[in-house]
């Protein structure tokens, strides 16, 4: 009977706002922490896996991100959106990982031959799949400082202001980096896009 009650509570959707969850966590409500993980694990994992290109590293840093959210919960400023605070933690961890493994040196995207650029798209669906694969591949080839703001904008739908806060750069820098990323993608995917249309 008791088990059923507990299960029923666990599946109930938590309607609290992000900032309410954080203040509840600061007051010792561990269920609030569970809800924070449920809400943000998908977006943060998506960013980390695309930034690091490796599932194991992304999973490791995903755990560390939420450990830091829990440990440094008192440092959270309730006037700021929780999503930008959590993305800032994840982004800083990813940068630290790049520095550690010296992955800053990237192959220039113009020199990369995309496997899906081979002209073998037999019909429309294949072309659609091809553009998806090519796009993912081309994004993975972008330099990290262009890739990150591009993903935060296109994948996570963050505003310029939020991206600037996450990356700790000016809004003008965010705009120019996103513009540059798009220009690089246009160049790299020109052929694949023509076939996809």
């Amino acid at each position: 009977m008791a088990v059923r009650l507990v299960r029923g509570r666990a599946h109930r959707k938590d309607e609290r706002a992000d900032s309410e969850l954080m203040s509840a966590l600061c007051s010792g409500d561990e269920e609030a922490f569970s809800e924070i993980i449920r809400r943000f694990q998908g977006p943060v994992y998506s960013l980390l896996i695309r930034m690091l290109g490796n599932e194991d590293e992304a999973e490791e840093l995903l755990q560390v991100t939420f450990c830091r959210v829990h440990r440094y919960r008192d440092h959270y400023d309730p006037s700021r959106p929780l999503v930008t605070w959590i993305f800032t933690i994840a982004s800083n961890l990813a940068k630290k990982e790049w520095r550690r493994r010296s992955r800053w040196i990237q192959v220039p995207i113009d020199n990369v031959t995309l496997t899906s650029s081979i002209q073998t798209a037999p019909h429309y669906e294949a072309g659609r799949r091809e553009l998806k694969a090519s796009l993912e591949e081309a994004i993975a080839m972008l330099p990290p400082h262009y890739r990150e703001p591009f993903l935060l904008r296109e994948d996570q739908q963050l505003t310029y202001e939020e991206i600037a806060e996450v990356l700790n750069v000016r809004i003008g820098t965010v705009k120019s980096r996103i513009n540059r990323a798009r220009a690089m993608l246009r160049t790299a995917l020109s052929d694949a896009w023509e076939r996809w249309r």
Binding site: S34, I37, R38, Q41, G42, P43, V44, Y45, S46, I49, E55, A58, E59, L62, Q63, F66, C67, H70, D155
Partner: peptide, 12 residues
């Protein structure tokens, strides 16, 4: 989007 590990909370 890639699916995060199912036991993430337990591991955290």
């Amino acid at each position: 989007r890639p699916e995060p590990p199912a036991d993430l909370e337990k591991r955290v």
